[in-house]
Amino acid sequence: MTKKIITAAGVLVSALALSVSTAGPANAATGFTAIRGCGTTGAYGDMSATNWHGPEATITIKFTLTDTAADGNSVRMRLVSKDTFGRIHYWPWRTNSQGKDKTSTWNTTASHPNGLFDIGIQVARVNGDGSTRNQCADW
Rank of each mutant, 00 (worst) to 15 (best):
G42N: 14
T84C: 12
G24D: 01
D129K: 09
A110E: 09
Y44A: 14
M1E: 02
A28Q: 05
S111G: 04
V11W: 09
Q98S: 10
M1G: 12
A137F: 07
T41M: 11
W106S: 02
I121T: 06
D46A: 12
A49K: 08
G128N: 13
A57V: 08
A26C: 05
V20S: 00
K62G: 05
G31Y: 07
S81V: 11
V75L: 10
S74V: 05
G24S: 02
F85P: 03
S104D: 04
S131T: 15
N27L: 03
F117E: 06
V123F: 14
T58C: 15
L16H: 06
L16Y: 06
W106P: 03
D129W: 08
T7C: 07
K3H: 03
V13I: 12
T108K: 01
K82D: 08
T84N: 11
A29R: 04
V80A: 14
V11T: 10
V80P: 06
R133I: 05
M47G: 11
G115F: 00
G31A: 08
S14K: 00
N27F: 04
N73R: 15
A43F: 07
I121P: 01
A57N: 04
S74K: 13
S81C: 14
L79H: 07
N73C: 13
S81K: 13
L16E: 02
R94Y: 05
R36E: 07
T64K: 14
G39V: 07
L65F: 05
N114P: 04
G45D: 04
K100N: 07
T108Q: 00
D118E: 13
G10D: 01
A49L: 15
Q135S: 15
V123S: 13
V123K: 12
H112R: 10
W93R: 01
V123G: 15
P113Y: 03
K82P: 02
N127D: 12
L16C: 05
N51E: 13
W52V: 10
G37W: 02
D118R: 07
R76D: 10
I61K: 13
T66D: 06
G130W: 08
D46W: 11
I119A: 09
G45H: 03
Q98T: 02
G39T: 14
A43M: 09
T40G: 12
H112K: 06
H89T: 07
E56G: 15
G120C: 09
S81I: 07
D129A: 09
T68E: 14
S97W: 03
V126G: 02
A8Y: 01
E56I: 10
L18R: 00
